[in-house]
Amino acid sequence: MPEGGLAIQTRGLTKVFGRQTVVNGIDLSVPRGSVFGFLGPNGSGKTTSIRMLLGLASATSGEITVLGQQMPKRAGTVLPRVGALIEGPGFYPFLSGTANLRRLDSADRFARTSTRTARVGEALERVGLTHAAGKKVRAYSLGMKQRLGIANALLTPRDLIVLDEPTNGLDPQGTREVRNLVRSLTAEGTTVFVSSHLLAEIEQMCTHAAVMRAGNLVAQGSLDELRQAGQSRVRVLTPDPGPARRVLAELGLAVEVDADGRETHPLDGESVTAPLDAGNWVDGPIDAGTRTDRPLDPERIVAALVAAGVRVRGFAVERASLEDLFVALTGEGFDVAQ
């Protein structure tokens, strides 16, 4: 298996329930070693996709490769290397946390019996449940069950861990622990596939992401790539909006007529904005060696403005946040697309 290949790859993955297409021909590419965020509003087909990846539901059409092997045909050899938390934890309420993990571990024929007790203990410790290990799961809080679910995914060393909404029901403290856990997993070389409807969560722990909307995959790539797909813009604060607009237009920027209504301090004058194409200037740290003078490098815009006598009181290049992108891709508010 090639190192640095894909941990998950799907081609034209489709799921139809009755007349409703829940997942519509998605092509996922999850690089090995990445923390891959699978984003989308509720009901956009994330969990159904995950169920298909794990062989729980059959695909209506399309191909799935997980860890280099066909799913669901090779489920028997693939799944032991995959840990999963799928749509919330599921446990026997009448058994203790330890007994639940032992039960699921013994269902895995590749898991060694001799190390079971040690592995169960370790997994519980990793999610901070050692003190509640002997308690019946019935008495667990939602957050504790969620932790136990994550512990189950960690029972044996895995190559891929799939976490569906891992921070559901967790307090902020628990959410941070999950982030740390994911970080430590990637340090061990595990690929982590996290689904979430919370952008902030993905932004904080992922290296790559894909965005689902109404069963379609609308964006995919590394976080940087995604950010660049969004529109950056320059914002000039000046008491001379007229000349400022003219200068920007001369530089070839499409000045936005309707300023976005952002409040400015009266002393700063008006805000003039124009979208800035990422290709026209150098993003990221500017290294003297690679520096090239391009007409739209921000500093040249400022120079042009000042040369034209515009009183520049503020200047900023605003990068599109992932949130803008997410909202642009998936729509705003509660109007979950059908």
Binding site: L54, G55, L56, P80, V82, E87, D108, N152
Partner: peptide, 8 residues
């Protein structure tokens, strides 16, 4: 689902 992905 957890039993099936264990996998059984």
């Amino acid at each position: 689902r957890y039993l099936l992905v264990s996998p059984v």
